[in-house]
Design a protein around this nucleic acid. Structure first.
Length: 260
DNA sequence: ATGCCACCTTCAAGGTGA
């Protein structure tokens, strides 16, 4: 099964681009971020016509996440434990009924955190701590678990074109990279690092300053796997070509193939 | 130094987010 993670930067604006890529790549599951619409505005029928079941956690204008699945969605939740006061739609988690048993998939839109000296940075770190606590709890279930999303974390120096350009940014802050490492230390495998790991393979290029044309990207979309999922990891791919499509998202899909 | 894009309010252009 192929599971993709894609920050689409508005599902309504991007719909033709998304549908075209789905026809070409036909992933079984898509974890979407930044759908930028409310639940009732999500273009359900277009995806249902392609055979996908849908779980949406939207909000007006900003954020919003969704999971599309060819497999039945047996369970779905929209909240990270501890986020009762969190009004931002950044997390959705489903249990998918595959032919080889349940696979739990989360779509994660981690806060950007800029500027680094403000409340948004504190919110990012708090959000990451909540994610780690929840991931630890899920990890104890010893099931196939896929934590896919836009983490807004530049983890390695070679995940950006120029470290100096990101030195003071919340995506590269030491506290943020430490917290991402702590998440992985709960027993998760970064699919890209496990199967490829090549430096300077990016998942995001800013629309500004000709970043795409200049190769000025960053690798901030990650797919983390529990041991039970990592054991059946067949491969990983970054669909870089989608960045050159008409009306592209500033992110491209990252895809894992699991032997399930 | 700057270059983009989407969405909101409310019909035009500025604010916010990233």
């Amino acid at each position: 099964m192929k599971i993709a993670s894609w920050n689409v930067n508005s599902v309504r604006t991007r719909l033709p681009t998304i549908l075209k890529w789905l026809e070409d790549a036909h992933p079984d599951v898509i974890a979407m971020q930044e759908i930028k619409c409310q639940d009732e505005q999500f273009p359900r029928t277009e995806f249902e016509d392609m055979g996908y079941n849908i779980a949406v956690h939207g909000q007006k204008s900003y954020n919003g996440v969704a999971i599309l699945s060819r497999y039945p969605i047996e369970e779905s939740t929209n909240t990270l434990p501890g986020d009762d006061l969190d009004d931002q739609a950044r997390y959705i988690e489903t249990v998918l009924g595959t032919d080889t048993g349940p696979v739990r998939v989360a779509s994660i839109y981690l806060p950007n955190g800029n500027p680094k000296d403000g409340g948004k940075f504190t919110y990012k770190l708090e959000w990451m701590r909540r994610l780690r606590a929840h991931a630890k709890a899920l990890r104890a279930h010893e099931e196939k678990l896929v934590l896919a999303g836009d983490y807004n974390v530049i983890f390695r120096d070679e995940d950006c074109w120029d470290v100096a350009a990101w030195a003071d940014d919340a995506l590269y802050a030491a506290e943020v990279r430490d917290e991402f490492a702590a998440l992985m230390w709960e027993g998760f495998t970064d699919a890209y690092m496990a199967k490829d790991g090549q430096p300077h393979q990016y998942t995001f290029w800013d629309y500004q300053r000709g970043c795409w044309q200049r190769g000025h990207g960053i690798h901030i979309d990650h797919i983390l796997l529990s041991p039970q999922a990592a054991d059946i990891l067949q491969g990983v791919e970054i669909a870089k070509d989608t960045r050159a499509m008409d009306k592209p998202s500033d992110h491209v899909p990252i895809i894992v193939e699991l032997d399930a």
